[in-house]
C-alpha cells in the first residue's frame, strides 16, 4: 500500500459523515464469505466424529468472521488498485466512506478475535489453520504475489481452499487425506475460475497494473492454462467418490459437472472470434461457481441423508 490515493482521509468526525454499518459489512466481502462458510460447513459435516451443534455454529461464525477480516485487510492494502478498476471502484475505501486506517483496525480486530475465539472455544488446530488462512491471504497473496507474478492466484488460491480443512479440523482436531483432498479440489479450481474472469476483465487489471495472466502472457496462453488446470481439476473432483468421502451420487454428479466444465474450457480454447471468447469465458466463470457449489452440496446432502437413514 505504498501509494494509496483515496478520495479523502477523514481527519475529524464532522469533516465527513464516516462509514455506515453497511460499509463495514461490505468490507467483509459477504459474497465471498458465503462460499467460505458453505465449504467450511461441508468440512464440518463430512468429518468423522461428533461436535456439539452449538460448537459447530460457533466454529462457522469464527470462520465467517475470519474470512470477513481477510476481506477487510485485503481492501485496506489494495485500496490504491481498487480505485482504478470498474469492478472494485465502488468499494467503501475507494468511494471514500471508510478510511484505510479504519479498515485496517477493523480487519485486525476481527482477525485476532476470530482466531482466539475459535482456538479457545473449539480447538487450537482449527484456530491455527484459520490464522494461517488469514496470513496466507493477506501476506502471501495480497501483499506479495498479486502484484508480482501472473501465477498470483495459483498459489494465492490456497487461502480460499483452507475453509473445509478448518471445518474438518474443528471436528477431528487434525488434518487428514480427506480434508487435504477438499483443499486440493478448491486449489485446482481457483485458476480456471479467476482466469475466466480475467479474460473478460483484462482492461481492468491492465489499468490497475495487476499482472494477471491475460495481461502478461496474453489471452491465448491464458486459455491454454485454463484447459490444463481444468484437465487436472476434473479427475481430482471425482476422487472423493473413490476414497469413500463421497458416494455413488457424488461420483455421477462430479463426472457430469466435470465433463461440462472441461467441455466449456475446450470450447474456450478453440474459440477464434473475440466476442465468442468473451461469451464463453463468462459462461465458464458462472459455471465454475455452480461446479464447486454442486460438488460440495452433494457431499453435504449425501452425508446428511446417510445420517437420517441410520
Amino acid at each position: 500500500m505504498s501509494d494509496v490515493t483515496v478520495p479523502y482521509t477523514r481527519k475529524s468526525l464532522t469533516e465527513a459523515p464516516g462509514g455506515t454499518v453497511g460499509d463495514f459489512i461490505a468490507l467483509m466481502k459477504p459474497r465471498v464469505m458465503s462460499l467460505v462458510v458453505f465449504t467450511a460447513l461441508v468440512g464440518l459435516v463430512v468429518a468423522p466424529g461428533d461436535l456439539h451443534p452449538a460448537l459447530a455454529v460457533i466454529a462457522l461464525i469464527c470462520i465467517a468472521v475470519g474470512a470477513g477480516a481477510s476481506g477487510a485487510l485485503n481492501m485496506w492494502y489494495d485500496a490504491d488498485i481498487d480505485v482504478r478498476m470498474a469492478r472494485t471502484a465502488g468499494r467503501p475505501i475507494p468511494r471514500g466512506s471508510v478510511t484505510p486506517e479504519e479498515a485496517f483496525s477493523f480487519g485486525m480486530v476481527l482477525s485476532i478475535g476470530s482466531v482466539v475465539t475459535l482456538g479457545v472455544l473449539v480447538n487450537w488446530v482449527a484456530g491455527a489453520l484459520l490464522a494461517l488462512t488469514i496470513a496466507f491471504y493477506i501476506v502471501i497473496y495480497t501483499m506479495w504475489l498479486k502484484r508480482s507474478t501472473p501465477q498470483n492466484i495459483v498459489i494465492g488460491g490456497a487461502a480460499g481452499a483452507f475453509p473445509p480443512m478448518i471445518g474438518w479440523a474443528a471436528v477431528t482436531g487434525g488434518v487428514s487425506i480427506e480434508s487435504i483432498l477438499m483443499f486440493a479440489i478448491i486449489f485446482m479450481w481457483t485458476p480456471p475460475h479467476f482466469w475466466a474472469l480475467a479474460l473478460f476483465r483484462t482492461g481492468d487489471y491492465e489499468r490497475a497494473g495487476v499482472p494477471m495472466l491475460p495481461v502478461v502472457a496474453g489471452e491465448k496462453e491464458t486459455r491454454r492454462q485454463i484447459v490444463i488446470y481444468s484437465a487436472l481439476l476434473v479427475p481430482l473432483g471425482v476422487v472423493p467418490a473413490v476414497i469413500g468421502l463421497g458416494g455413488a451420487a457424488y461420483g455421477i454428479i462430479a463426472t457430469v459437472l466435470g465433463a461440462i466444465f472441461l467441455g466449456l474450457a475446450l470450447s474456450l480454447w478453440r474459440a477464434e472470434e473475440e466476442a465468442k471468447r468473451i461469451e464463453i469465458a463468462k459462461r465458464l466463470f458462472a459455471f465454475s461457481i455452480l461446479y464447486l457449489f454442486g460438488l460440495f452440496a452433494v457431499l453435504l446432502v449425501e452425508r446428511l441423508a446417510a445420517g437420517f437413514m441410520s
Partner: peptide, 30 residues
C-alpha cells in the same frame, strides 16, 4: 453533515454493542 455523522456513529456504536453481546453469549453457551 454533523447530524449525519452523529447518526452513523450511533449506528456503529449499536452494532459494536450487539457484536460484544453476541460474543458474551457465544462464550456463555460454549
Amino acid at each position: 453533515d454533523d447530524q449525519e455523522a452523529k447518526r452513523r456513529q450511533r449506528m456503529r456504536s449499536i452494532a459494536i454493542g450487539l457484536a460484544l453481546a453476541g460474543l458474551v453469549l457465544l462464550f456463555y453457551v460454549a
